[in-house]
Amino acid sequence: MTDQRRLRVTEVRSLCPEIRQITLEPLEGTALMGFQPGSHLILHAGEHRNAYSLTGDGIMPSRYTVSVLKRNDDGGSAWLHQHLAPGSEITAEGPVSMFAPVHNQQHALLVAGGIGITPVLSHASALAALQKSAEVIYAYKPHRAAHVDQLREICHSAGFRLTEVTSAGNCRKALRDRMSDQPVGSHAYVCGPMSMLESFLEIGAAAGWPEYRLHLERFEAPELDPGEEFALRVSGSPEDLRVPVGVSILETLESAGYSVPNMCRQGVCGQCQISVRSAGSLEHRDYVLTEEEKAAGGSLMVCVSRGTDVEVAL
């Protein structure tokens, strides 16, 4: 887990209905950490801890900016919309880098859907600052085009190109068109709704992109099946636990009194990664570990993954 710190809100700006940009600055006498493009900040929003992509380029930042889409009336995003005003203080953790650019990429294709623009904006800003080349596809609903002016300005840089689309069909068309026309050595990044991520993977594979060139930032995960009951042990504890059908390892550990760092509880954020001492079998169901890491079986995301006769080290 990353250290917690207090930050001061210096601006709250409405970008479009339901989306507010929040600017955070350090309290007096403290500095802000730089971050990899695509990093997120965890904000304590009432009783919730939510992750928000930082939209800046990450290079010696004097402020952090996040854009918060209000999802429903009682979640963390609603709390942030309701409670934050210039002058308020908030507890934050991070920045956490889970969607960083590949260091030796020759060029980047950046794809954003809706509020998924936030980490893409960070990547695009950093590439423009470093005078690298990139191409951006931004799919949005016309009344909810957050950051579109800022993105257009960045894409005026030499070596940049922007395609804007406002329907799912046109988005697929743009993906087909642009994924087949990127230079050798490109890496592609997407953040958006699940249907868009699926199109990105499918069209990318058809265009010959190896998996290691396709990078996904997920903010939602599909429903999982409840699985079977299995035995769980914690190294150093004599107690044998059972993980019931429809209950996660994380929930089982919490019920048994263990404290495990966690956040998204849907296999996306990577916070609940735990070492595996031994296992009869493992069923990895997260979006964090690579295929190699899953095959090696050294750890698992206890919020979603299951197995048989699993022994974990806390």
């Binding site: 994924m179 087949s180 026309d181 990127q182 230079p183 050798v184 265009a207 010959g208 992109w209 060139r213």
Partner: peptide
């Protein structure tokens, strides 16, 4: 390689 496209 400059004429080729990613996916080659």
């Amino acid at each position: 390689l400059a004429e080729a496209r990613c996916g080659v």
